[in-house]
Structure formats: structure tokens, C-alpha cells
């Protein structure tokens, strides 16, 4: 996999993960979540997930899920989830990290997701891994990767 192809893979994987039934969105970065908190500071906190909701990012759903606003601050230019283009200085999306330790060997793909309530965690994580594997097989059939999927919240 060459560097210029990484942005395309990032975008493809982002779309693949978001298309998994039961996945609400990729985990937003804390900077994006803080910007959401700042924008809502002038309104009372009203969220079904706010009480005792450690681990839930429910109140951040609209901006984190759609994410189609102008990049701000450290996010820089990028794709819908603030996707990262190596070389342009923009940070990678918090919920999707792609790396190749040492520059050779299998890629490491770390996926962090927020799922919808009422779904079974194990099933969703397996489906997400399957979607990532299918995406890799389509775009980069000769590449190998180790895939990690973590549920960081529910909405």
C-alpha cells in the first residue's frame, strides 16, 4: 500500500464501518466532542444519555455522526469524520487508526465505534471486522492487516 492510496483507504473504511447495521458512528475525537459541548453551552444539557452515561457519546451524535461541517482547530481539512491524509498535517479520525509498525509487514487497523442501543456488542464488532476485511479485499487484496474493533459507547 503506498502513501497516496492511504486517504482513499481511510475514506473507504470509514464508509464501510458506518454502513454496518447497528453502528451509530465512529468514535469522535475529544476535540470534536469538546467543540460540540462548547456550541451547546448556551442551552441546558438535555440528553437521554447524560445521566450516569459513562462511555456514551449520545449527546454528541448530531455533529459527530454527520461531521460534515468545516474542519476547525486541530482537525484541519479532511473527510466527513475528519479523515486523515498523511502529509497534510491533519489528524486522523479518532475512531479509525491505520498504521504499519516499522513500515513493513501487516497493517494495523484500529476501529473504535459507538453502537446503537438494542444491538448485541459481539455481533456488531464481528460485523464491523467483516466489513473492514471485505473493504480491504476489494481495495487492497494483496495487503494483510490485523484488525481491532472496540465499542466505546452506545446511543
Amino acid at each position: 500500500m503506498t502513501q497516496p492510496q492511504l486517504p482513499a483507504l481511510t475514506e473507504a473504511l470509514t464508509a464501510a464501518v458506518r454502513g454496518v447495521p447497528g453502528v451509530a458512528f465512529l468514535k469522535p475525537g475529544i476535540a470534536r466532542s469538546l467543540r460540540t459541548a462548547l456550541r451547546r453551552a448556551d442551552r441546558p444539557a438535555v440528553s437521554a444519555g447524560s445521566a450516569g452515561s459513562a462511555g456514551s457519546a449520545g449527546q454528541d451524535v448530531p455533529d459527530a455522526h454527520h461531521g460534515r461541517h468545516t474542519q476547525e482547530g486541530s482537525a484541519g481539512p479532511g473527510g466527513p469524520d475528519g479523515s486523515h491524509h498523511p502529509g497534510d498535517g491533519a489528524p486522523p479520525p479518532a475512531g479509525l487508526r491505520i498504521s504499519r509498525p516499522g513500515g513493513t509487514g501487516p497493517w494495523t487497523i484500529d476501529v473504535r465505534i459507538v453502537t446503537r442501543a438494542g444491538t448485541r456488542a459481539l455481533d456488531i464488532t464481528r460485523a464491523t471486522r467483516g466489513a473492514v476485511e471485505a473493504c480491504l479485499a476489494t481495495h487492497f487484496p494483496t495487503e494483510t492487516a490485523h484488525i481491532t474493533v472496540t465499542i466505546t459507547g452506545t446511543v
Binding site: 450516569g52 452515561s53 462511555g55 456488542a121 464481528r126 471486522r129 481491532t148 472496540t150 465499542i151
Partner: peptide, 20 residues
């Protein structure tokens, strides 16, 4: 992070999410 699935699957869920 808590393990999901079999040993080689590398699937996880954060403790605070699982506790609810």
C-alpha cells in the same frame, strides 16, 4: 477494555459501556 469473542478475534468493549 473487555474482551469479546474468541482469543484471536481482538474485539473489545469498554467497561463503562458494558456495565450499563
Amino acid at each position: 477494555p473487555l474482551p469479546l469473542g474468541e482469543a484471536g478475534e481482538d474485539l473489545w468493549i469498554m467497561e463503562s459501556v458494558a456495565a450499563r
